[in-house]
Amino acid sequence: MNYSNDLYRNIILDHIENPKNKKEINSQEYLKSYLKNPACGDDVLIYVLIDKDIIKDVSYDVNGCTVCKASTSIMSELLIGKTLKEVDIIINNINNMLVGKDFDKNIIKDAIAFEGIKNLPPRIKCAILPYKAFKKAIGDKDEL
């Protein structure tokens, strides 16, 4: 185990044990979308509250593996308070990291814990699922 492993481990454990921004949403103002990974059964329900072009809130319900769960919690932290334009940049950087391309470390914060996913290609889909669901919720049709 090296320093970064230890750090990544703590980040992931923290998001698993204390999922951030997860709460019950009854308000009709939230955009909603449900996505399931048919191959493995992971599923996420994402709630997004947008005001003009700012993401006011993100919540979720997620069933699945560690990667999918932690990724969803991390996403909520990353996206709340951002403009749609900023969101686009963040998601692109995370996607790049997952598939082993260049990315900006400073933009993606805790999501850095998934840097190693590029060496576990079958798991990329678990990490990316909440981002796909988010894009679907806000009606962004660009493919991830």
Binding site: C40, D42, G64, C65, T66, V67, L120, P122, R123, C126
Partner: peptide
């Protein structure tokens, strides 16, 4: 407490 995919990935490694 460990999801089957995490076991699967561990073994895959």
């Amino acid at each position: 407490n460990i999801h089957s995919h995490d076991i699967g990935s561990l073994l895959d490694k």
